[in-house]
Nucleic acid binder design. Structure first.
Length: 766
DNA sequence: TTTGTGCATGGCG
DNA sequence: ACGCCATGCACAA
């Protein structure tokens, strides 16, 4: 035993009070570990301690414990699953799965053997490793794993922690230099100074993530059509609560990214080219860790789409684990720079802290910028309030405000924390829209937003038309062009958003998605065939109004030749080539070259494009001009009814948020704004909302909405209930179906200002 | 006076 | 009834 050297390459200690036996070597012997490393090995935290910066970490598919795969030191602690993935040895045993390997388990190393003296050893390991400046890794790896839970059981039963009697392993461990020692204490600094491979992984992941989060920031466009079968497509509303994806083929839905420059990946991975048009609804996902699923309120569930997940983690070795998200409250987004974290999330996903001061936390944003926030807590009653301090620069750099959503994800196996965001479109877009005065103003504002959307060139190359409302507004903000008059309501709104009900806020976010749906719908709507519009001039803006409802079709460009002949151009959903079609046909929402029955020489994607780039450019320009003039309104009769109703219900929309306590807002309300209630809309549309909800098994929505509002409602015309189930301000009924005239109708209730619902009736004919 | 900090309060789920 | 958390608020710097 003369000149022994610790087998641990990171240690290589040549002297030790006691040498310990480590993992089995190929030679049949065992690794020779110094006191410190040996203890770590015995404690099952060897890799946690020494390899935390390495790649190869995966999570136990059952308990989520971090496992270092492919490492000899951990080989006995995990099982490779037949179905892929890994399982920790404990879960393997509990599940009765027969271990397939590792019978050479050294020294019978298992939880049971280590448990006996773990308390003593735990401390000793910690102390000894401390000097290596890698303790935090150790703890971090413990944090998210059942190792920690295992340790917890072994720890002294006394509980000096005030909060709830739940012992956190870390809290009874020796202090680890939480403050002022970022290099060793950061939960996510695993990547710093990590191996080159890890860096590459992170880079790869981040490049995708950047796109993703930028796209997230723009929010999806979603159009949902009701199916005639009665199969409820309440995904947009209910998924938020239920976390279910409803993707029936019948429920034709489309989702588009609102990217200024849509990454081809996004377009190619199933938005435009998705043959089945399976909807990509933003669905809240319960946390991966099963335990948390029940604890974490759904409003914190990450709402990333499969598509986005696939996009960012697709060909990378890293997996992106969406952790949670939070809608920023006014306080969060305010200048205090403190972001209150949901307790359950903080305790589940961030390192455990024992001192109120907490520790600095390094989080990377979508641009790859590293932010360091102080992650800490305040004692609160007998509990804790977790906050991130110093978030102001980050919030500002992301141009976030109350109502926007920040998302937290983790790159596994690196464990790096990522921070993304989604803008709540309404917070800005709503301010851009004028207070609506009367129906003409309402129309005008519709036109405004519509024109805004059309004011940018169409993106022909990407095979999709991009909308740029957000981009425009965002740039306004960025350039500091917000007028002072708009800033005041902004602050007010901020306050309103967070103060009362998060759920209402979520509703409004969905509403905004729907608003964009409407924008998109406008582009996909065509005037009914063989009907001449009446020209309606409202505030110097000409609109074409049709007696018949518009119809839904694939976007196309209608052009009139100088000879007078009319033609229609549309883009193949598969090859993106433009094809000339007769002007008097309506295209299905999805159309490809083989559908071109009018021109057999161009009924294949291999057929060359008929348009030169210059011609295309001209065509697009033409289309732009055309759309500037076109404004498809709802059925005129319907419009009149709405108009009447809105006059009769001047108080609709009052209340709910902080309106009553806000004098300025009160004043606004009394300045003759027209408020159209959801209820009245639904009455117009022939079926009361409540009835509709009940018919579709959405009674949960009714009860939920009831308690959320103190405002009055229009008494439903056809039910005996006096309480309207829905708050006019916030109710979002994304669609509504009726069988009138054999058509399906879609109602999109749009929230422009809290007190104003902007209705849109869109009719779909198939 | 303003800004930052730590805790208390109270609405709400 | 309880706990979370948005915000208020007193005190400090």
């Amino acid at each position: 035993m003369g000149s022994r050297v610790c087998t641990n390459d990171l240690c290589r200690a040549s002297s030790s009070q006691e040498w310990k036996k480590g993992w089995p070597l190929r030679s049949g012997e065992f690794a020779n570990l110094c006191d410190k490393c040996g203890s770590a090995y015995e404690q099952l935290v060897f890799c946690d301690t020494f390899h935390s910066k390495d790649t190869g970490w995966r999570e136990c598919s059952t308990c989520g414990k971090h496992l270092h795969c492919g490492c000899i030191a951990s080989s006995s602690l995990l099982e490779l699953l037949d179905s892929g993935g890994v399982k920790c040895i404990e879960c393997t045993r509990t599940s009765g799965l027969q271990p397939t390997s590792n019978d050479e388990n050294p020294k019978g190393l298992s939880m049971s053997t280590t448990n006996n003296n773990s308390e003593k050893q735990l401390t000793s390991v910690d102390n000894k490793v401390d000097g290596d400046n890698v303790t935090a890794m150790n703890h971090e790896q413990l944090d998210n794993s059942d190792v920690r839970n295992g340790l917890k059981d072994l720890l002294p039963s006394h509980n000096d922690d005030a909060h709830g009697g739940q012992i956190k392993g870390e809290e009874v461990l020796p202090p680890r230099g939480e403050v002022g020692n970022m290099s060793s204490s950061n939960f996510n600094q695993v990547s710093i100074g990590s191996s080159e491979a890890a860096k590459v992984d992170i880079y790869k992941a981040n490049t995708g993530i950047k796109d993703l989060y930028e796209s997230l920031a723009q929010t999806n466009l979603t159009i949902a059509l009701a199916s005639p079968s009665g199969n409820s497509n309440h995904a947009v509303v209910e998924d938020r609560e239920l976390g279910k994806t409803i993707s029936s083929f019948q429920q034709v839905s489309r989702s588009r990214q609102l990217l200024p420059k849509p990454p081809k990946a996004i377009l190619a991975t199933g938005l435009e080219t998705n043959a089945s048009m399976v909807p990509q609804i933003r669905v809240a996902r319960p946390p991966a860790e099963g335990r948390l699923k029940n604890q974490l309120l759904p409003r914190y569930w990450p709402r990333i789409t499969d598509q986005e997940l696939q996009l960012i983690s697709g060909d990378s070795n890293s997996t992106i684990v969406p952790l949670f998200e939070k809608v920023l409250s006014a306080s969060d987004a305010g200048r205090i720079g403190r972001l209150v974290l949901p307790k359950a999330c903080a305790e589940a996903y961030f390192p455990h802290i024992s001192q109120p001061e907490g520790l600095p936390l390094r989080i990377q944003d979508v641009k790859g910028k590293e932010w360091v926030f102080q992650f800490r807590f305040w004692p609160n009653n007998n509990s804790r309030m977790y906050v991130l301090e110093g978030v102001t620069p980050c919030i500002q750099s992301m141009q976030l405000q109350a109502g926007d959503t920040v998302t937290f994800s983790r790159i596994d196996p690196e464990g790096k924390l990522l921070m993304g965001f989604r803008k709540a479109l309404n917070t800005i877009a709503m301010q851009k829209l004028p207070v609506i005065s009367g129906y003409s103003g309402l129309l005008q504002s519709l036109a405004d937003s519509h024109l805004n959307a059309l004011s940018k060139p169409l993106n022909s190359a990407g095979g999709d038309f991009s909308w740029h409302i957000m981009e425009k507004h965002a740039s306004d903000t960025k350039d500091g062009l917000l007028l002072p008059s708009m800033l005041a309501p902004e602050r007010k709104r901020s306050r309103n958003i967070g103060s009362k009900s998060k759920r209402l806020l979520i509703d409004s976010q969905d509403a905004l998605e729907l608003k964009l749906t409407w924008e998109e719908a406008q582009d996909m709507l065509l005037p009914p065939l063989s009907e001449k519009p009446s020209i309606l001039t409202i505030e110097d803006q000409e609109f074409e109004e049709y007696e018949e409802p518009p119809v839904f079709a694939k976007r196309s460009i209608f052009a009139t030749r100088s000879s007078g002949g009319q033609e229609q151009w549309t883009q193949c959903d598969s090859c993106s080539k433009w094809r000339k079609l007769p002007a008097d046909i309506l295209l299905p929402p999805k159309w490809t070259c083989p559908d071109n029955i009018w021109d057999h020489s161009r009924c294949s994607c291999s057929a060359p494009d008929e348009l030169s780039p210059r011609e295309l450019e001209y065509l697009l320009k033409l289309n732009k001009e055309f759309k500037k003039r076109r404004m498809i309104t709802s059925h005129r009769m319907l419009r009149d009814q709405i108009n009447n109703l809105s006059h009769k219900t001047p108080e609709i929309g009052k209340g709910g948020l902080d309106l009553n306590s806000d004098p300025e807002r009160e004043e606004q309300l009394h300045q003759g704004s027209t408020r159209v209630s959801m209820m009245s809309l639904l009455q117009v549309a022939s079926l009361p909302l409540e009835t509709y909800l009940k018919q579709n098994g959405l009674t949960s929505l009714i009860s939920e909405q009831e308690g959320s509002s103190g405002s009055q409602s229009l008494p439903p015309a056809t039910t005996g209930e006096s309480e309207g189930p829905v708050h006019e301000d916030h109710c979002v009924v994304p669609w509504f179906k009726s069988t009138r005239a054999g058509m399906m109708s879609l109602i999109i209730a749009e929230m422009i200002l809290p007190e104003i619902l902007l209705p849109l009736f869109v009719y779909f004919r198939f």
